[in-house]
Structures are given as C-alpha cells and as structure tokens.
Design a protein around this nucleic acid. Structure first.
Lengths: 146, 146
DNA sequence: TCTTTATAGACAAGTAAGTTGTCTACCAGG
DNA sequence: CCTGGTAGACAACTTACTTGTCTATAAAGA
C-alpha cells in the first residue's frame, strides 16, 4: 500500500479541523482573545502546581515563550500569579473564574466537535480508537504540527 | 463521557508525531533544508499543472506566502519554473530530479511512520479507519494545526 | 474593437509567535 | 559558605507568515 502519506495528511487535517472547530466555538462564547495554544496552557494550569518553567516544558517551548504566554493570560484576566510557598523565585499559576469559564467552554466545544466521530464509529469502536491512540501516541509536548 | 478534549489532544499529538517522524527521516536522507510544509507543496506540484497562485489555494496561504515558498524551493534546487503555454502571466511549477528524490524519501518515511498503526490495528481495521477519516474529514487546505 | 474587470506574480513593509543570549535573585548540596 | 543549578525578567533577533500596492496579462461584454 502507499496510502501512508495520505493517512498522515488525513490525521493532520483532522487535528486541524478539531482545533479550528473548538477554537471557533470558544470564540463564539465570548472568549475572542484566546488562541488554541492557550487551551493547553489552561489544561496544565487547572491541574494546579504549575509554574512558568513547568508550563514551558509541558508545552514544549522555551520558558521565555511560556513567560510571554502567561503574561498575556494574566493581562487578559484568565490567570493569576501567586507566590510559591516553598520557593521565593517561583510563582504558582492559577486560573481566575474567567479562566475556569473558558476551560468549561472549551470542554463543551470539544464534545460537540468530537460528536460526529462518536456517532460514526459507535461508542465501542470509538473507545477502542481512543485506547489505541493512548497506547501508540508517545506522550510528548503539546505543540502545533510544525 | 468527557474524553472529548483528551481525544482531540491525542489526535493532535499523533499528527505532530507523524509529521515530526517523517520530517526527521527525510532530513536524515540528506534533505536537511526542507520543512514539513514543503512536503505538501511537493505533493501538489508533483501532480503537474501547478502555479504559484494555485499552490497558495492548496496550502491555504496567501499567494505572497506561496511565492516565497516557491522562491525558496527554486533556490534550493527542488523546483523549476517553466513558462505557461497559455498564459503569459503565469509560470508552471515542476519538480527537479532532486525534488522527486525528496518526494520518494517522504513517501518511504511515511510508510515507516505509519507502520506501527497498520500493525496495531490490522489491515482491515486500518482501512476502515482511513475510510472513516476520508469520510468525516472535510477536504480543506493543508495547514499546521494552528 | 475598446473598455472594463479579474488574475498571476513581484516588491515592500508590518506582525505574531516564537528563538537565543544575558542577567539577577534564590535554592540546595557538598 | 561557597559552588553550581534553576525561576523568571529583559532585550534583540528570526521565521513564516500577513496586508497593501504595483505591473502585465487575460477574458468578457458593450
């Protein structure tokens, strides 16, 4: 077979489509100043205990880039910096209520975007696919495709 | 269920992984001055009849961006511009022998990158998945995820 | 045939989101 | 208490685009 490139292109197209769809719905809910990358920052920050440097590693960017992103999110009111209890150099990141609202909006948008796949595959095959994805996809930084 | 965001993240991670793996192998074959985006340009140009403006539409970028990309590929010896037989404004794009060699390398790299999926799913389920992808993924411009 | 409108591509400048490089303040292990 | 490592800030630079404008050519209608 030689549909390997086609398969890759399709997966890339699908991921782009999901990202775009989620982003569009989140924007529509009033969060127009957020970009797709912000969602992955929110996901990390919402777990608690995140610092700028930790976020940088999670996102696979330099800490300078992460610092810029955090600064932007703070300025826009989605994130606050708290003093770190055990390290005077570091700041603990946390979501504001607005940040949580955006996170909930993204979650709902993702459900809607993924719904066609759930339907098309059926719940069983969908779960299998998720399992395969979890197994075969090496856990790495969350980054745009290139 | 609320694994919709997780599913999206996994698909994104997978596409990034495929792109990176293909890119790495192509680089290793001696094409170190190519980026992932170039591959999609090659794919369009190899079909024949491509112009800069047509390429721009295919890639989902402005024609200025496409012109820069073409200029770069010409400078690096992967692409040549021929006069268009019926339109004195346009130039027909074509791959050089080096361009074809890079295309073949990418194809082979994709096979290798996709092989684990073929094995894990089995040929039948893999084909089903490709069919589902083809059906559910709206044909759009080939772009990085964001 | 002439005029209008659209298109291919070039040239120039601006922008977004990263990068490298350097610095200070603070931490932790010997 | 010194020495090497880390968190984050500040600055300059780079890349891969963008918008805006221009000329030459094409195509279609009066």
């Amino acid at each position: 077979m030689d549909d390997a490139l086609a398969f890759s292109a399709l997966v890339l197209a699908l991921s782009g489509q999901l990202v775009q769809e989620i982003h569009a719905r989140v924007s529509q809910q009033g969060f127009e100043d957020l970009r797709p990358a912000h969602g992955f920052a929110f996901a990390r920050i919402s777990l608690g205990g995140a610092t700028t440097a930790g976020l940088a590693e999670h996102l696979g960017v330099t800490k300078q880039a992460a610092a810029q992103l955090v600064e932007e999110l703070v300025r826009k009111g989605y994130v606050v910096r708290h003093p770190h209890p055990h390290d005077a150099r570091a700041r603990l990141l946390a979501l504001t209520e607005t940040g949580w609202a955006a996170t909930r909006a993204a979650d709902q948008a993702a459900q809607t975007a993924v719904a066609p796949w759930r339907e098309a595959l059926g719940e069983a095959r969908f779960s299998e696919l998720v399992a395969d994805l979890t197994r075969l996809t090496s856990p790495g930084p969350i980054r745009p495709a290139w």
